[in-house]
Computed example of a mutant assay.
Amino acid sequence: MKLLCYAVSDLEKPYIMAWAQKNNIEIKMVTEELSYKNVQLAQGFDGVSSEGITPVDERVYQAFETMGIHQLAIRQVGVDNQDLLAARKHHITITNVAAYSPRAIAEMGVTQAMYLLRNIGIYQDRMAKGDFTWDESTISTEIFNCTVGLVGVGHIGGATAQIYRALGAKVLAYDLTYDASLEPYVTYTDLNTVLHEADIISLHTPLFPTTENMISEDQFKMMKSTAILINVARGGLVDTTALISALQHHEIAGAGLDTLADELSYFGEHKNPSELPADYETLSQMPNVLITPHVAFFTKLAIRNSIEIALNDAKTIIEGGRSRNIVS
Rank of each mutant, 00 (worst) to 15 (best):
R304S: 13
I309K: 01
G235A: 12
I244G: 03
H249D: 13
K129S: 13
V79C: 04
T189N: 05
K221Q: 15
G44S: 08
T31C: 10
D199S: 05
H204L: 11
D57S: 14
T282C: 12
S306P: 04
H250P: 04
D258G: 02
I163Y: 03
E275Q: 15
D262E: 15
M127E: 14
A7K: 04
S181I: 10
L247K: 03
V30D: 01
R126V: 07
V56A: 08
K13C: 06
P206F: 07
S306M: 15
G157K: 01
A198T: 08
G78T: 10
S101W: 03
I156Y: 02
I16C: 00
S306D: 05
D83H: 08
H270N: 12
E65K: 14
E33Y: 12
Y266L: 11
H204M: 11
G256T: 07
S202A: 13
S328D: 14
D313R: 00
V148Q: 04
I326L: 09
V151H: 02
A87P: 02
N23Q: 14
E32S: 13
T138I: 14
L117M: 14
T205N: 04
L85G: 09
S328V: 06
N288I: 11
S306G: 07
T205D: 02
V289T: 03
K170I: 09
L72H: 00
T193A: 10
T226F: 02
Y280E: 10
R118F: 02
I201V: 15
T54L: 14
N272Y: 06
G157S: 02
Y15F: 15
A73V: 04
G268C: 07
H270L: 13
L191W: 05
A278V: 14
D135E: 13
S140P: 03
H294D: 12
T138F: 06
S265D: 09
A99L: 09
E197Q: 15
P293F: 11
G154Y: 08
Q162C: 05
T111Q: 10
S35R: 03
I16E: 00
M127A: 15
Y164C: 09
T282Y: 08
R126G: 01
Q82L: 14
D10L: 13
T133F: 07
T226R: 01
L191C: 08
L34S: 02
Y164R: 06
I309Q: 01
T93L: 13
I156E: 01
A255T: 07
I74Y: 00
T138E: 05
E26H: 12
A233H: 06
N325C: 09
I303S: 02
M29R: 03
P14R: 03
K22H: 14
E33T: 11
K170L: 10
P102V: 07
A159P: 00
G78W: 06
P55G: 08
L4F: 10
L41M: 15
V48R: 01
G149R: 00
Q21N: 14
S306V: 08
A302N: 08
I291S: 08
M286H: 11
D57N: 15
D125C: 11
R59N: 14
V97G: 00
I326T: 07
M127Q: 14
V194Q: 01
G52C: 05
A73E: 00
E26S: 09
A296Y: 02
K129T: 13
G78R: 03
G109K: 03
I139T: 12
G78H: 05
